[in-house]
Design a protein around this nucleic acid. Structure first.
Length: 298
DNA sequence: GACTCGTGGGA
DNA sequence: TTCCCAAGAGT
């Protein structure tokens, strides 16, 4: 039994029942799930995915609505630029591919918001192709089980893809299953903190466990701060605009943060990113929103 | 490569 | 409470 065989057998007995894994899920549904899952935990993605797919069951439906609606529906999933890019992605799919999610990896990678991970994930999980699909989970599993190190580097490298490629079965269908199995293993067994090695199919062969599960050496990554950052201020501003039914005066946005300089920087950043649009002299709206009704100063 | 970009929940 | 981190992408 190879590692892939062990992983596949384990997956078939232990996989979570997630909605985007249902056999009737479309490639669009897979794509939406993958984008939502970029840095957002499964538990928060699940209800959001259901709502999104109900409202926009295919790329053409999303492309027909303004991007502001996508930003609103995104809610509090975080990193709202993903909502903007997913909308742009839907538009591109309609324009370039007749509304059908492409099955070619290079065409997928050319879409907005689709990077090394997401492109391969869609080609593999939606179309059953054979590609190494490497996310943070896979990196951790391979790093531990094969290399015997406690944790992988912060970003996916070409070496990570090569390492995973070497573990994939030749058969296309089994390769796809192996990819999802490695990911699932990292997500629920070989976790970053307190891995459940007793439940792991690699228990007897894992290089990291055989070495006595050494701890990571130095500070692995720099601490991720949020409080007081521009990201927090952007989040506060966008939260106001998401709920607005009319253009929002700057004075209303001034209430969300007391540091004038930082607030101005956050707001102009949102405008530069295309999430927010100035309207007239002193109002702001979610990008793509049609101004309607009277100004309601809250 | 190093940085930026949200949000929330569990240890 | 504080810290960590969760299916990354783009610059």
């Amino acid at each position: 039994m190879t590692l892939a065989d062990e992983a596949i057998a384990w997956y078939q007995a232990n996989a979570r029942d997630l909605p985007w894994r249902q056999p009737d899920t479309t490639p669009w549904g897979v794509l939406v799930s993958e984008v939502m899952l970029q840095q957002t935990p499964v538990v928060r993605v699940e209800p959001a995915w259901r709502s999104w797919m109900t409202r926009w069951p295919d790329p053409a439906a999303l492309a027909a609505d303004p991007v502001s609606e996508a930003i609103r529906m995104w809610g509090r999933l975080g990193y709202p630029r993903r909502a903007m890019r997913l909308h742009a992605c839907a538009v591109a799919i309609v324009d370039r591919h007749g509304g059908r999610v492409p099955d070619d990896l290079d065409q997928l990678l050319a879409l907005p918001g689709v990077g090394t991970y997401t492109g391969r994930a869609v080609a593999t999980f939606a179309y059953g192709q054979r590609h190494p699909v490497v996310d943070t989970n896979v990196r951790r599993v391979v790093c531990r089980a094969v290399e015997g190190k406690p944790d992988a580097g912060p970003t996916t490298t070409a070496a990570d893809l090569t390492a995973m490629e070497a573990l994939l079965p030749e058969d296309e269908e089994r390769a796809a299953k192996a990819s999802i199995a490695f990911m699932e293993l990292g997500a629920i067994v070989c976790t970053a903190r307190s891995p459940k090695c007793a439940d792991c199919p690699f228990h007897d062969v894992c290089a990291w466990r055989l070495r006595g599960e050494p701890l990571p050496e130095g500070p692995s990554r720099k601490p991720q701060k949020y409080a007081g950052t521009d990201r927090q201020v952007r989040g506060l501003i966008l939260e106001v605009l998401r709920h607005a039914t009319a253009p929002v005066p700057r004075q209303r946005l001034d209430l969300v943060w007391n540091d004038d300089l930082q607030r101005a920087r956050a707001l102009s950043g949102l405008v530069e990113d295309g999430l927010v649009e100035p309207l007239g002299e002193h109002d702001f709206i979610l990008a793509g929103d049609a101004p309607r009704g009277e100004i309601q100063p809250l």
